[in-house]
Design a protein around this nucleic acid. Structure first.
Length: 262
DNA sequence: ATGGTGGAGGGTCCA
């Protein structure tokens, strides 16, 4: 079974890229982030026409996540538990959706970027990561086979960025962000792409639109799959679908997938 | 010269 993640950066602009990627690589499950659409605006008909079911958690203009699957998946939750203290009437950001598919709990995650730093956006990132850590602990303690995948907006190590000095002071490599990432991993989750490619540097999943980042290969590795133990035991392969970043009207992220034994 | 580009949506924000 192939489980992929793809930050599409706007479903309306990216629909042709999404459809061709699904048809060419045929993932069983595709976790999407940054659909930048309300739930009702997601192109369900076009996606269903090529053989995928849709679970969508959207909001206007920003964020938004989805889980597409070959067979119907069962929605477990939208939104992470927690975040008491939201101002009255404020709504949480659409960054988390969790579903069951073929005996695997799958979450599509769009973790806050957190820039600029310091400030309220970075504070929100750290609070959100703590909520994610708690949700991950619940799944872990219940021994639910799980894949937590998406855009974590954290490059775990300096070798996961094209230049740590160029990125100095950025929320994606900030020590507090990395510590919060490690606090989740410390529960025991396996980071699949790094596990399959332990020695590979220059293994990136995102290249900024600006400053010629793609032609310079000035990328970051920020899209990840975290696997619970019984899924980790079934991990066969993991890879970055790099070529999609180079296509016309590409997202600034490229898809990443894992294959687990059926 | 505090840049550069892209998406969504509406008279700018987010990344």
């Amino acid at each position: 079974m192939r489980i992929a993640t793809y930050n599409v950066n706007g479903i309306k602009a990216r629909l042709p890229r999404l459809l061709e990627w699904l048809e060419e690589t045929k993932p069983d499950v595709a976790c999407l982030q940054e659909i930048k659409s309300v739930t009702e605006g997601f192109p369900v008909r076009e996606v269903e026409e090529i053989g995928y079911h849709c679970l969508v958690h959207g909001q206007k203009a920003f964020n938004g996540v989805a889980i597409l699957s070959r067979k119907p998946a069962r929605l477990v939750m939208t939104g992470l538990p927690g975040e008491d203290g939201l101002e009255s009437g404020a709504e949480d950001q659409a960054r988390y959706i969790e579903a069951d598919y073929e005996g695997v709990r799958i979450a599509s995650i769009y973790l806050p970027n957190g820039n600029p730093l310091p400030g309220p956006k970075f504070d929100y990132k750290l609070r959100w990561m703590e909520r994610l850590r708690k949700r991950a602990a619940e799944l872990w303690d219940a021994e639910i086979p799980a894949v937590l995948t998406g855009d974590y907006n954290v490059a775990p190590e300096d070798r996961d960025v094209f230049s740590a000095s160029a990125m100095a002071g950025d929320a994606l490599i900030e020590p507090e962000s990395r510590a919060a990432w490690r606090a989740i991993l410390a529960q025991g989750w396996l980071e699949a792409l790094r596990a399959v490619h332990p020695q590979d540097d220059g293994l990136y999943t995102f290249w900024d639109y600006q400053a010629g980042a793609w032609p310079r290969d000035a990328g970051l590795r920020i899209d990840h799959h975290l696997l619970s133990p019984t899924i980790a035991d079934r991990l066969m392969n993991a890879q970055v679908d790099k070529e999609y970043r180079g296509r016309d009207r590409a997202s600034d992220h490229t898809p990443v997938w894992i294959d687990i034994a059926d």
